[in-house]
């Protein structure tokens, strides 16, 4: 049971949603944008989050869309992980999403919710970081398109009330060869101890990581080491692990040392996939 009252709105345009947000905020109602609800509902129930108004964005066509647009593919922020996987438009994003939650929850959790939520793993962002996605944002000043690297650094950083409408990715990245390795504590579907997504950009492997540090990251320096073929893969992995070590998290899912061990295993598996031509 959610132990407080709130109002519910279901606008049909991004403009209405953003205007509504600011009106509600001004009247002190503490509004939230709402997609699948898996995080907001459970946190509200447990008393970890309060809000006075819910702005459901699922009826906004741009938020719900999953489609091809010429040489780009587009994913609305309210598209579910399940819908994105079924579309087959960005296989790495599909595979990453399919390991975030059980099937039932894949049909509720939205792309925007996973990226903008408070649960720190935000694995859906990894493929977008690798594909240099552009983020479609709506603010009171209107629609804007910005690079993911401008607005995402560990977490999504938007001005208050700005709405993430969707993400746009070039087909050359969406269809690029890729690898996805996820290590969990025990259960297949769980938060990551370490998740590594890799994407082949013209023979240069990009990779991004979730689970090891407090927040997900992609690091260009680490990518350079990763691609430095003058050294054997094991030493490259060792070097990367050493550089990542300072921020490694210890918690109930695993100690920092174990996280680094699984992270290295994941890197080695990506190397092996690359060597054996197992990246698709």
């Amino acid at each position: 049971m959610i132990p407080f009252e709130f109002e519910y709105f279901r606008p049909e345009t991004a403009e209405d949603a953003v205007r509504l947000y600011h009106e509600l905020a001004q009247s002190g109602l503490e509004p939230v944008y709402y997609g699948g609800g898996s995080e907001l509902l459970t946190m509200a129930r447990a008393g970890n989050r309060r809000f006075g108004a819910v702005i459901d964005v699922k009826a906004i066509p741009e938020c719900a869309a999953v489609e091809e647009e010429g040489d780009k593919v587009y994913f609305g922020s309210a598209a579910t992980l399940g819908a994105i996987e079924r579309s087959g438009l960005f296989p790495l994003l599909g595979r990453t999403g399919a390991r975030i939650a059980d099937h039932t929850m894949q049909l509720r959790i939205t792309l925007g919710g996973n990226i903008a939520g408070t649960i720190r793993y935000r694995e859906a962002v990894l493929p977008l970081l690798l594909a240099d996605a552009s983020m479609e944002i709506y603010t009171p000043d209107g629609a804007q398109s910005v690079s993911i690297h401008q607005v995402f650094s560990g977490r999504l950083d938007l001005p208050p009330g700005a709405l993430l409408v969707g993400c746009r990715v070039a087909k050359e990245f969406a269809r690029a060869r890729h690898g996805h390795v996820k290590k969990t504590k025990s259960e297949k579907i769980d938060y990551p101890v370490a998740t590594v997504c890799a994407l082949d950009a013209d023979g240069y492997l990009r990779f991004a990581v979730s689970g090891v540090h407090e927040n997900p990251f992609r690091d260009l320096t680490l990518e350079e080491i990763f691609n430095d073929t003058r050294t054997v893969p094991r030493l490259r992995a060792d070097k990367i692990v050493e550089m990542v070590r300072p921020g490694a998290v210890s918690d109930v899912l695993g100690s920092a040392e174990y996280r680094l061990f699984t992270f290295k295993r994941a890197l080695m598996e990506i190397f092996a996939m690359e060597r054996e031509g197992a990246m698709v």
Binding site: T42, A46, K185, D190
Partner: peptide, 26 residues
């Protein structure tokens, strides 16, 4: 045998109080 077990911090506070992290075999 593979997943379940209550974990506590040194002061005895349970760390796994949600089915998000307390996993049963799927």
């Amino acid at each position: 045998a593979t997943r379940e077990g209550m974990e506590f911090d040194p002061s005895g506070r349970p760390l796994d109080t949600s089915l998000r992290t307390y996993k049963v075999m799927h």
